[in-house]
Design a protein around this nucleic acid. Structure first.
Lengths: 208, 208
DNA sequence: AGGCTAATGGCAGCCACTGACAGTTGACGA
DNA sequence: TCGTCAACTGTCAGTGGCTGCCATTAGCCT
Protein backbone atom coordinates (compact mmCIF):
# COMPACT_ATOMS: atom_id res chain seq x y z
CA UNK A 1 0.00 0.00 0.00
CA UNK A 2 1.53 3.26 -1.10
CA UNK A 3 1.25 6.38 0.94
CA UNK A 4 -1.04 9.32 0.22
CA UNK A 5 1.90 11.57 -0.52
CA UNK A 6 3.15 9.22 -3.21
CA UNK A 7 -0.26 8.95 -4.79
CA UNK A 8 -0.56 12.71 -4.85
CA UNK A 9 2.80 13.08 -6.53
CA UNK A 10 1.88 10.48 -9.08
CA UNK A 11 -1.34 12.29 -9.84
CA UNK A 12 0.37 15.66 -10.19
CA UNK A 13 2.96 14.23 -12.51
CA UNK A 14 0.40 12.58 -14.75
CA UNK A 15 -1.74 15.67 -14.75
CA UNK A 16 1.24 17.71 -15.92
CA UNK A 17 1.94 15.09 -18.58
CA UNK A 18 -1.62 15.21 -19.81
CA UNK A 19 -1.79 19.01 -19.83
CA UNK A 20 1.52 19.22 -21.65
CA UNK A 21 0.45 16.70 -24.30
CA UNK A 22 -2.85 18.46 -24.78
CA UNK A 23 -1.31 21.90 -25.11
CA UNK A 24 1.62 20.83 -27.29
CA UNK A 25 -0.69 19.13 -29.76
CA UNK A 26 -3.09 22.06 -29.98
CA UNK A 27 -0.96 25.20 -29.65
CA UNK A 28 2.31 23.60 -30.69
CA UNK A 29 5.44 23.12 -28.62
CA UNK A 30 6.88 26.61 -29.03
CA UNK A 31 3.47 28.15 -28.66
CA UNK A 32 3.10 26.65 -25.20
CA UNK A 33 4.88 28.12 -22.20
CA UNK A 34 5.75 26.24 -19.06
CA UNK A 35 3.51 28.68 -17.22
CA UNK A 36 0.61 27.55 -19.42
CA UNK A 37 1.16 23.93 -18.41
CA UNK A 38 1.59 24.74 -14.73
CA UNK A 39 -1.48 26.92 -14.74
CA UNK A 40 -3.58 24.22 -16.40
CA UNK A 41 -2.74 21.89 -13.52
CA UNK A 42 -2.89 24.68 -10.98
CA UNK A 43 0.61 24.38 -9.65
CA UNK A 44 3.45 26.89 -9.68
CA UNK A 45 6.01 26.99 -12.45
CA UNK A 46 8.62 26.07 -9.86
CA UNK A 47 6.79 22.85 -9.15
CA UNK A 48 6.73 21.93 -12.81
CA UNK A 49 10.51 22.05 -12.82
CA UNK A 50 10.62 19.79 -9.79
CA UNK A 51 8.82 17.09 -11.80
CA UNK A 52 10.58 17.57 -15.12
CA UNK A 53 14.13 18.65 -15.85
CA UNK A 54 12.81 20.88 -18.60
CA UNK A 55 10.06 21.50 -21.09
CA UNK A 56 11.54 18.90 -23.43
CA UNK A 57 11.31 16.16 -20.87
CA UNK A 58 7.59 16.75 -20.44
CA UNK A 59 7.19 16.19 -24.17
CA UNK A 60 9.31 13.06 -24.31
CA UNK A 61 8.35 11.36 -21.04
CA UNK A 62 5.51 9.37 -22.63
CA UNK A 63 7.80 7.92 -25.26
CA UNK A 64 10.10 7.11 -22.39
CA UNK A 65 7.53 4.69 -21.02
CA UNK A 66 7.42 2.81 -24.32
CA UNK A 67 11.18 2.78 -24.67
CA UNK A 68 11.63 1.35 -21.20
CA UNK A 69 9.33 -1.50 -22.09
CA UNK A 70 11.22 -2.10 -25.31
CA UNK A 71 14.59 -2.32 -23.58
CA UNK A 72 13.13 -4.64 -21.00
CA UNK A 73 11.77 -6.83 -23.79
CA UNK A 74 15.23 -7.12 -25.29
CA UNK A 75 16.58 -8.19 -21.94
CA UNK A 76 14.02 -10.98 -21.76
CA UNK A 77 14.57 -12.41 -25.22
CA UNK A 78 15.83 -16.01 -25.40
CA UNK A 79 19.61 -16.18 -25.28
CA UNK A 80 19.97 -18.27 -28.40
CA UNK A 81 18.27 -15.76 -30.65
CA UNK A 82 20.37 -13.78 -33.12
CA UNK A 83 20.97 -10.17 -32.00
CA UNK A 84 19.14 -8.42 -34.80
CA UNK A 85 16.22 -10.80 -34.47
CA UNK A 86 15.98 -10.08 -30.74
CA UNK A 87 15.77 -6.36 -31.48
CA UNK A 88 13.20 -6.93 -34.21
CA UNK A 89 10.95 -9.05 -32.05
CA UNK A 90 11.19 -6.62 -29.14
CA UNK A 91 10.17 -3.65 -31.25
CA UNK A 92 7.20 -5.47 -32.71
CA UNK A 93 6.21 -6.58 -29.25
CA UNK A 94 6.53 -2.99 -28.07
CA UNK A 95 4.12 -1.73 -30.70
CA UNK A 96 1.71 -4.51 -29.91
CA UNK A 97 1.55 -3.71 -26.21
CA UNK A 98 1.77 0.06 -26.53
CA UNK A 99 -1.89 0.51 -25.84
CA UNK A 100 -1.85 -0.83 -22.31
CA UNK A 101 1.19 1.24 -21.36
CA UNK A 102 0.01 4.56 -22.71
CA UNK A 103 -3.70 4.46 -22.09
CA UNK A 104 -3.07 4.46 -18.34
CA UNK A 105 -1.93 8.07 -18.68
CA UNK A 106 -3.34 9.56 -21.89
CA UNK A 107 -5.48 8.36 -24.81
CA UNK A 108 -3.35 6.56 -27.38
CA UNK A 109 -4.64 8.88 -30.05
CA UNK A 110 -3.20 11.86 -28.17
CA UNK A 111 0.09 10.03 -27.83
CA UNK A 112 0.27 9.49 -31.57
CA UNK A 113 -0.47 13.12 -32.27
CA UNK A 114 2.28 14.10 -29.83
CA UNK A 115 4.61 11.85 -31.79
CA UNK A 116 4.01 14.05 -34.80
CA UNK A 117 4.79 17.18 -32.81
CA UNK A 118 8.10 15.72 -31.68
CA UNK A 119 9.05 14.77 -35.21
CA UNK A 120 8.21 18.19 -36.62
CA UNK A 121 9.66 20.41 -33.91
CA UNK A 122 13.42 20.85 -34.45
CA UNK A 123 14.43 21.25 -30.82
CA UNK A 124 12.28 18.29 -29.76
CA UNK A 125 13.55 16.14 -32.59
CA UNK A 126 17.09 16.93 -31.51
CA UNK A 127 16.39 15.88 -27.94
CA UNK A 128 14.66 12.76 -29.21
CA UNK A 129 17.65 11.78 -31.31
CA UNK A 130 20.03 12.26 -28.44
CA UNK A 131 17.93 10.03 -26.26
CA UNK A 132 17.90 7.44 -29.02
CA UNK A 133 21.66 7.45 -28.93
CA UNK A 134 21.69 6.84 -25.20
CA UNK A 135 19.35 3.92 -25.67
CA UNK A 136 21.59 2.54 -28.38
CA UNK A 137 24.50 2.57 -25.97
CA UNK A 138 22.43 0.60 -23.47
CA UNK A 139 21.38 -1.89 -26.11
CA UNK A 140 24.92 -2.33 -27.37
CA UNK A 141 26.09 -3.30 -23.88
CA UNK A 142 23.12 -5.61 -23.52
CA UNK A 143 23.80 -7.43 -26.78
CA UNK A 144 27.51 -7.63 -26.08
CA UNK A 145 26.84 -9.33 -22.78
CA UNK A 146 24.31 -11.65 -24.37
CA UNK A 147 26.79 -12.71 -27.02
CA UNK A 148 29.74 -12.82 -24.69
CA UNK A 149 31.89 -10.23 -26.44
CA UNK A 150 33.67 -7.15 -25.12
CA UNK A 151 31.73 -4.05 -26.10
CA UNK A 152 34.86 -1.89 -26.03
CA UNK A 153 37.08 -4.22 -28.00
CA UNK A 154 34.55 -5.46 -30.54
CA UNK A 155 32.67 -2.82 -32.53
CA UNK A 156 30.00 -5.20 -33.76
CA UNK A 157 27.48 -4.68 -30.96
CA UNK A 158 27.48 -0.90 -31.41
CA UNK A 159 27.43 -1.23 -35.19
CA UNK A 160 24.49 -3.62 -35.18
CA UNK A 161 22.52 -1.41 -32.83
CA UNK A 162 23.35 1.72 -34.81
CA UNK A 163 22.13 0.10 -38.01
CA UNK A 164 18.98 -1.05 -36.30
CA UNK A 165 18.40 2.37 -34.77
CA UNK A 166 18.94 4.04 -38.11
CA UNK A 167 16.34 1.86 -39.76
CA UNK A 168 13.87 2.47 -36.96
CA UNK A 169 14.28 6.21 -37.28
CA UNK A 170 13.63 6.10 -41.02
CA UNK A 171 10.58 4.00 -40.27
CA UNK A 172 9.26 6.45 -37.69
CA UNK A 173 9.71 9.38 -40.02
CA UNK A 174 7.93 7.72 -42.89
CA UNK A 175 5.14 6.55 -40.63
CA UNK A 176 4.52 9.97 -39.12
CA UNK A 177 4.52 11.59 -42.56
CA UNK A 178 1.55 9.46 -43.62
CA UNK A 179 -2.09 10.33 -43.48
CA UNK A 180 -3.21 7.06 -41.97
CA UNK A 181 -0.82 6.47 -39.19
CA UNK A 182 -1.87 3.92 -36.65
CA UNK A 183 -0.14 1.12 -34.84
CA UNK A 184 -0.83 -1.53 -37.47
CA UNK A 185 0.70 0.65 -40.16
CA UNK A 186 3.78 1.04 -37.98
CA UNK A 187 4.12 -2.69 -37.57
CA UNK A 188 3.88 -3.30 -41.29
CA UNK A 189 6.43 -0.58 -42.07
CA UNK A 190 8.86 -1.92 -39.48
CA UNK A 191 8.77 -5.44 -40.90
CA UNK A 192 9.06 -4.18 -44.46
CA UNK A 193 11.95 -1.80 -43.86
CA UNK A 194 13.98 -4.25 -41.83
CA UNK A 195 13.66 -6.72 -44.69
CA UNK A 196 14.99 -4.19 -47.14
CA UNK A 197 18.16 -3.23 -45.28
CA UNK A 198 20.08 -6.01 -46.94
CA UNK A 199 19.01 -5.10 -50.48
CA UNK A 200 19.69 -1.44 -49.74
CA UNK A 201 23.36 -2.20 -49.18
CA UNK A 202 23.86 -4.15 -52.38
CA UNK A 203 25.60 -3.00 -55.52
CA UNK A 204 23.00 -0.91 -57.34
CA UNK A 205 19.25 -0.45 -57.14
CA UNK A 206 18.17 -0.31 -60.74
CA UNK A 207 17.60 -4.01 -61.05
CA UNK A 208 14.85 -4.38 -58.55
CA UNK B 1 37.04 41.52 -56.35
CA UNK B 2 34.81 41.57 -53.31
CA UNK B 3 33.77 44.76 -51.60
CA UNK B 4 35.16 46.10 -48.35
CA UNK B 5 31.86 45.57 -46.59
CA UNK B 6 31.86 41.91 -47.51
CA UNK B 7 35.42 41.46 -46.34
CA UNK B 8 34.58 43.13 -43.04
CA UNK B 9 31.60 40.84 -42.53
CA UNK B 10 33.71 37.82 -43.35
CA UNK B 11 36.31 38.91 -40.83
CA UNK B 12 33.75 39.51 -38.09
CA UNK B 13 32.17 36.13 -38.66
CA UNK B 14 35.45 34.30 -38.55
CA UNK B 15 36.54 36.24 -35.49
CA UNK B 16 33.33 35.19 -33.73
CA UNK B 17 33.93 31.61 -34.82
CA UNK B 18 37.47 31.67 -33.49
CA UNK B 19 36.48 33.29 -30.21
CA UNK B 20 33.64 30.83 -29.74
CA UNK B 21 35.87 27.83 -30.43
CA UNK B 22 38.52 29.13 -28.09
CA UNK B 23 36.08 29.83 -25.27
CA UNK B 24 34.06 26.65 -25.67
CA UNK B 25 37.19 24.49 -25.52
CA UNK B 26 38.59 26.25 -22.48
CA UNK B 27 35.62 27.22 -20.33
CA UNK B 28 33.21 24.68 -21.79
CA UNK B 29 30.04 25.33 -23.77
CA UNK B 30 27.72 25.99 -20.84
CA UNK B 31 30.39 27.98 -19.08
CA UNK B 32 30.55 30.44 -21.95
CA UNK B 33 27.90 33.09 -22.47
CA UNK B 34 27.08 34.74 -25.76
CA UNK B 35 28.13 37.99 -24.15
CA UNK B 36 31.58 36.52 -23.52
CA UNK B 37 31.97 35.70 -27.20
CA UNK B 38 30.66 39.06 -28.36
CA UNK B 39 32.89 40.88 -25.92
CA UNK B 40 35.96 38.94 -27.03
CA UNK B 41 35.38 40.19 -30.58
CA UNK B 42 34.22 43.60 -29.36
CA UNK B 43 30.78 43.56 -30.92
CA UNK B 44 27.37 43.75 -29.32
CA UNK B 45 25.43 40.65 -28.34
CA UNK B 46 22.81 41.66 -30.92
CA UNK B 47 25.41 41.48 -33.65
CA UNK B 48 26.37 37.97 -32.66
CA UNK B 49 22.79 36.91 -33.24
CA UNK B 50 22.84 38.52 -36.65
CA UNK B 51 25.69 36.21 -37.66
CA UNK B 52 24.46 33.05 -35.96
CA UNK B 53 20.96 31.81 -35.36
CA UNK B 54 21.99 30.79 -31.86
CA UNK B 55 24.83 29.73 -29.61
CA UNK B 56 24.66 26.20 -30.99
CA UNK B 57 25.25 27.31 -34.53
CA UNK B 58 28.46 29.03 -33.55
CA UNK B 59 29.68 25.73 -32.16
CA UNK B 60 28.66 23.67 -35.17
CA UNK B 61 29.48 26.06 -38.01
CA UNK B 62 33.01 24.71 -38.44
CA UNK B 63 31.76 21.17 -38.85
CA UNK B 64 29.34 22.62 -41.34
CA UNK B 65 32.22 23.54 -43.60
CA UNK B 66 33.46 19.97 -43.62
CA UNK B 67 30.00 18.55 -44.15
CA UNK B 68 29.38 20.82 -47.11
CA UNK B 69 32.54 19.55 -48.74
CA UNK B 70 31.52 15.98 -48.06
CA UNK B 71 28.10 16.38 -49.67
CA UNK B 72 29.70 18.08 -52.64
CA UNK B 73 32.12 15.17 -52.96
CA UNK B 74 29.21 12.74 -53.11
CA UNK B 75 27.67 14.80 -55.88
CA UNK B 76 30.85 14.54 -57.90
CA UNK B 77 31.38 10.80 -57.57
CA UNK B 78 31.30 8.80 -60.83
CA UNK B 79 27.77 7.74 -61.72
CA UNK B 80 28.61 4.06 -62.12
CA UNK B 81 29.88 3.66 -58.57
CA UNK B 82 27.78 1.74 -56.06
CA UNK B 83 25.93 4.01 -53.59
CA UNK B 84 27.65 2.85 -50.42
CA UNK B 85 31.03 3.02 -52.10
CA UNK B 86 30.36 6.59 -53.21
CA UNK B 87 29.60 7.56 -49.62
CA UNK B 88 32.65 5.74 -48.35
CA UNK B 89 35.01 7.38 -50.78
CA UNK B 90 33.56 10.80 -50.11
CA UNK B 91 34.01 10.53 -46.38
CA UNK B 92 37.61 9.39 -46.72
CA UNK B 93 38.24 12.21 -49.14
CA UNK B 94 36.68 14.60 -46.66
CA UNK B 95 39.01 13.58 -43.87
CA UNK B 96 41.97 13.80 -46.22
CA UNK B 97 41.23 17.38 -47.27
CA UNK B 98 39.96 18.59 -43.91
CA UNK B 99 43.17 20.46 -43.17
CA UNK B 100 42.89 22.93 -46.02
CA UNK B 101 39.25 23.72 -45.24
CA UNK B 102 39.61 24.27 -41.52
CA UNK B 103 43.02 25.85 -41.24
CA UNK B 104 41.75 28.88 -43.15
CA UNK B 105 39.66 29.76 -40.09
CA UNK B 106 41.12 28.06 -37.03
CA UNK B 107 44.01 25.67 -36.27
CA UNK B 108 43.01 22.08 -36.98
CA UNK B 109 44.00 21.14 -33.46
CA UNK B 110 41.42 23.56 -32.06
CA UNK B 111 38.81 22.11 -34.39
CA UNK B 112 39.49 18.63 -33.11
CA UNK B 113 39.23 19.76 -29.51
CA UNK B 114 35.93 21.44 -30.34
CA UNK B 115 34.76 18.14 -31.77
CA UNK B 116 35.21 16.65 -28.34
CA UNK B 117 33.20 19.42 -26.72
CA UNK B 118 30.32 18.80 -29.12
CA UNK B 119 30.34 15.09 -28.42
CA UNK B 120 30.39 15.56 -24.65
CA UNK B 121 27.86 18.39 -24.31
CA UNK B 122 24.30 17.00 -24.36
CA UNK B 123 22.59 19.99 -25.94
CA UNK B 124 25.29 20.29 -28.60
CA UNK B 125 25.25 16.59 -29.31
CA UNK B 126 21.49 16.79 -29.80
CA UNK B 127 21.82 19.63 -32.28
CA UNK B 128 24.60 17.74 -34.03
CA UNK B 129 22.46 14.66 -34.41
CA UNK B 130 19.57 16.64 -35.81
CA UNK B 131 21.82 18.20 -38.38
CA UNK B 132 23.10 14.77 -39.28
CA UNK B 133 19.57 13.73 -40.00
CA UNK B 134 19.04 16.67 -42.29
CA UNK B 135 22.17 15.75 -44.16
CA UNK B 136 20.95 12.18 -44.46
CA UNK B 137 17.78 13.42 -46.11
CA UNK B 138 19.87 15.37 -48.62
CA UNK B 139 22.05 12.37 -49.33
CA UNK B 140 19.08 10.07 -49.75
CA UNK B 141 17.65 12.33 -52.44
CA UNK B 142 21.04 12.56 -54.07
CA UNK B 143 21.53 8.81 -54.22
CA UNK B 144 17.98 8.23 -55.38
CA UNK B 145 18.50 10.59 -58.30
CA UNK B 146 21.86 8.99 -59.09
CA UNK B 147 20.32 5.55 -59.18
CA UNK B 148 17.16 6.64 -60.91
CA UNK B 149 14.70 5.56 -58.23
CA UNK B 150 11.89 7.46 -56.52
CA UNK B 151 12.97 8.46 -53.03
CA UNK B 152 9.39 8.49 -51.77
CA UNK B 153 8.34 5.18 -53.24
CA UNK B 154 11.53 3.22 -52.66
CA UNK B 155 12.88 3.15 -49.09
CA UNK B 156 16.30 1.88 -50.07
CA UNK B 157 18.02 5.26 -50.51
CA UNK B 158 16.98 6.43 -47.04
CA UNK B 159 17.80 3.06 -45.51
CA UNK B 160 21.26 2.93 -47.05
CA UNK B 161 22.04 6.46 -45.92
CA UNK B 162 20.69 5.80 -42.43
CA UNK B 163 22.89 2.74 -42.08
CA UNK B 164 25.88 4.66 -43.33
CA UNK B 165 25.14 7.55 -41.00
CA UNK B 166 24.75 5.22 -38.07
CA UNK B 167 28.12 3.66 -38.69
CA UNK B 168 29.76 7.04 -39.05
CA UNK B 169 28.33 8.20 -35.75
CA UNK B 170 29.64 5.14 -33.96
CA UNK B 171 32.98 5.80 -35.57
CA UNK B 172 33.03 9.42 -34.45
CA UNK B 173 32.18 8.51 -30.89
CA UNK B 174 34.85 5.88 -30.65
CA UNK B 175 37.40 8.16 -32.23
CA UNK B 176 36.70 11.06 -29.88
CA UNK B 177 36.86 8.77 -26.85
CA UNK B 178 40.45 7.86 -27.64
CA UNK B 179 43.58 9.44 -26.30
CA UNK B 180 45.33 9.70 -29.63
CA UNK B 181 42.76 11.15 -31.90
CA UNK B 182 44.06 12.55 -35.12
CA UNK B 183 42.95 12.45 -38.71
CA UNK B 184 44.85 9.29 -39.61
CA UNK B 185 43.23 7.42 -36.72
CA UNK B 186 39.85 8.56 -37.99
CA UNK B 187 40.55 7.27 -41.46
CA UNK B 188 41.60 3.89 -40.18
CA UNK B 189 38.57 3.58 -37.94
CA UNK B 190 36.21 4.55 -40.75
CA UNK B 191 37.58 1.89 -43.08
CA UNK B 192 37.58 -0.73 -40.37
CA UNK B 193 34.06 -0.09 -39.12
CA UNK B 194 32.51 0.05 -42.56
CA UNK B 195 34.05 -3.34 -43.27
CA UNK B 196 32.46 -4.79 -40.15
CA UNK B 197 28.89 -3.72 -40.80
CA UNK B 198 28.21 -6.88 -42.76
CA UNK B 199 29.58 -9.23 -40.09
CA UNK B 200 27.72 -7.27 -37.40
CA UNK B 201 24.41 -8.18 -39.00
CA UNK B 202 25.07 -11.92 -39.23
CA UNK B 203 23.67 -14.65 -37.04
CA UNK B 204 25.84 -14.59 -33.95
CA UNK B 205 29.17 -13.13 -32.98
CA UNK B 206 30.78 -15.83 -30.92
CA UNK B 207 32.51 -17.48 -33.85
CA UNK B 208 34.77 -14.64 -34.81
C1' DA C 1 -0.90 16.35 19.69
C1' DG C 2 3.39 17.77 18.09
C1' DG C 3 7.82 17.43 15.96
C1' DC C 4 10.00 16.03 11.57
C1' DT C 5 10.52 16.15 6.75
C1' DA C 6 8.97 16.19 2.09
C1' DA C 7 6.56 19.09 -1.11
C1' DT C 8 5.23 23.54 -2.59
C1' DG C 9 5.02 28.58 -3.64
C1' DG C 10 7.03 32.98 -4.34
C1' DC C 11 10.78 35.79 -5.45
C1' DA C 12 14.98 37.41 -7.40
C1' DG C 13 18.11 36.66 -10.89
C1' DC C 14 20.82 34.61 -15.04
C1' DC C 15 20.95 33.70 -19.79
C1' DA C 16 19.39 32.85 -24.63
C1' DC C 17 16.93 35.15 -27.88
C1' DT C 18 13.87 38.80 -30.38
C1' DG C 19 11.62 43.12 -32.10
C1' DA C 20 11.93 47.98 -32.66
C1' DC C 21 14.32 52.09 -33.35
C1' DA C 22 18.16 55.08 -33.93
C1' DG C 23 22.89 55.90 -35.28
C1' DT C 24 26.86 54.79 -38.23
C1' DT C 25 29.35 53.49 -42.25
C1' DG C 26 30.40 51.61 -46.74
C1' DA C 27 28.47 51.71 -51.75
C1' DC C 28 27.48 54.11 -55.77
C1' DG C 29 25.69 57.39 -59.08
C1' DA C 30 25.49 62.41 -60.22
C1' DT D 1 33.93 64.78 -54.57
C1' DC D 2 29.84 64.72 -52.52
C1' DG D 3 25.38 63.40 -51.09
C1' DT D 4 21.98 59.84 -50.97
C1' DC D 5 20.66 55.30 -50.09
C1' DA D 6 21.09 50.87 -48.12
C1' DA D 7 23.42 47.83 -45.16
C1' DC D 8 25.33 47.09 -40.81
C1' DT D 9 25.54 47.91 -35.90
C1' DG D 10 24.32 49.24 -31.07
C1' DT D 11 20.98 50.05 -27.47
C1' DC D 12 17.02 49.02 -25.02
C1' DA D 13 13.13 46.73 -23.47
C1' DG D 14 10.87 42.48 -23.07
C1' DT D 15 9.82 37.25 -23.12
C1' DG D 16 10.60 32.65 -21.76
C1' DG D 17 13.33 28.75 -19.83
C1' DC D 18 15.57 27.61 -15.78
C1' DT D 19 17.82 27.86 -10.91
C1' DG D 20 18.88 28.98 -5.96
C1' DC D 21 17.02 30.50 -1.79
C1' DC D 22 13.85 30.86 1.85
C1' DA D 23 9.43 30.78 3.96
C1' DT D 24 5.14 28.09 4.23
C1' DT D 25 2.24 24.14 3.95
C1' DA D 26 0.94 19.46 4.48
C1' DG D 27 1.50 14.44 5.02
C1' DC D 28 3.99 11.14 8.18
C1' DC D 29 5.18 8.93 12.42
C1' DT D 30 5.70 8.36 17.41
Amino acid sequence: METLRERKKQRTREALLRAAAELFTTRGYEGTTVDDIAEAVDVSQRTFFRYFAGKEEAALALQGLVVTRFVQAVRERPAGEAPMEALRQSVLQGWATLHEVIEAVVPVELYLRLYRVVESTPVLLAAHLRRSEEIEETLARLLAEREGVDVDADPRPRLAVAVFGGVMRVTERQWVAREDFGLEEMRALTVSYLEQVGPALTENWRTR
